[in-house]
Design a protein around this nucleic acid. Structure first.
Lengths: 139, 139
DNA sequence: CCTATATTTGCAATTCGGTTGCAATCAAGG
DNA sequence: CCTTGATTGCAACCGAATTGCAAATATAGG
C-alpha cells in the first residue's frame, strides 16, 4: 500500500486497476491545472480512449474529481479538495482560464458569490469562470 | 426597408442575404431564450448546416449576438442588447439554464459580480451561469 | 441596367469530443 | 484457486463543428 492511488481508490469503493491508478496518478502530480481527456490520452499512450472517458466518469461520480465548465466544448477535470464525497461536491469555487497558456485551474479560496435572482426564478447551482492571465504567465 | 433585419445587417456592414435575414429574424422573434445551432437548423429546414454555423460566427463577430457558455457541448447564442458593437460586447450579465425545460436565457438585469483574484492573477473577463428552475416552469 | 468582383452559399469530406454494445480480460471475495 | 461481477479494448456510431472548393449571389462602378 505504498501508493496513495491505491488508498484513494479503495476508500471510494473502486476496484484497483492499472488504468485507474495511472490516471489518478496524473491528477495527483498535476495539482496546478485541470486535465482534459486529450491531455490524459497524450500522457498515457496506449490506453484506450474509452477507458479514459469511463474512468473520468467513475471518478467524478465518486467525487474524486469534478468537471469544470469550459466553453470550448472539451470537458476539463480537476481533483476535488478533501471534503467532497459521493454526489455532494464542495466545488463552489471560481475557475480560472488563462488566455495565454490556456491552462484551467481551480481558485479554491475564491468562492462563487451569491446573486439575487429575478422574481420567479429558483437558483440551485451557480458556476463562475474568470479568464485572464495566470500568475505563472505574468511572471 | 420595411424589415428590421435589413437595417441591422446594413448597420453592421454585412451583405443582405436571405439566409442571414431568416436567421436574424428567428433571434428577433425569440427574445426569451437562447438558440442552439440545432434549433435554427430545425426551424429553417432546407438551409445548409454550414451556412448556419458561418452566419452565427459572423453575427457574433459583429456583436449582433453573443455566445453563452454551456457545459453540454452545444453552443448557444442570444441577441446582444443595444450597446454592443464590433468586438466589444456588453454581455456582462448572468445566464440562466433551466434544469426542467433546458432553455437558456439572459438575465439582462443581473450582472456578474466582481470577485477579487488571488495575488498574481489578472482577470479580464468573468462569466457566470446559474441553473435552476425558470419562472415559466415554476408557474 | 448591366457587368465585374468580392462575398456567400451548398456540398462533400473530415475532425473532434463523446457514447454504446459486445466479447475478452481481470480484480475481489470466498 | 476458482467463480463472478466489474473493467477493458475494440469497432462502430453520433452530434457538433470546421475546411476546401465550385457554384451562386450581392454589391459597387460604370
Amino acid at each position: 500500500m505504498a501508493d496513495a492511488t491505491v488508498d484513494i481508490l479503495k476508500r471510494n469503493n473502486l476496484s484497483v486497476t492499472d488504468s485507474r491508478r495511472s490516471i489518478l496518478q496524473l491528477f495527483l502530480l498535476q495539482e496546478a491545472s485541470a486535465l482534459r481527456h486529450a491531455d490524459i490520452e497524450h500522457s498515457l499512450q496506449g490506453m484506450d480512449r474509452v477507458t479514459i472517458y469511463r474512468t473520468l466518469q467513475a471518478f467524478a461520480e465518486k467525487g474524486i474529481i469534478h468537471s469544470i465548465p469550459g466553453s470550448d466544448g472539451a470537458a476539463r477535470y480537476a481533483l476535488c479538495r478533501s471534503g467532497c464525497t459521493d454526489g455532494h461536491h464542495h466545488d463552489d469555487h471560481v475557475h480560472f482560464v488563462c488566455t495565454r497558456c490556456s491552462a484551467t485551474q481551480c481558485l479554491d479560496d475564491v468562492h462563487v458569490p451569491f446573486v439575487r435572482m429575478p422574481e420567479g426564478f429558483e437558483a440551485s447551482k451557480a458556476e463562475m469562470v474568470v479568464s485572464g492571465v495566470c500568475s505563472k504567465c505574468r511572471s
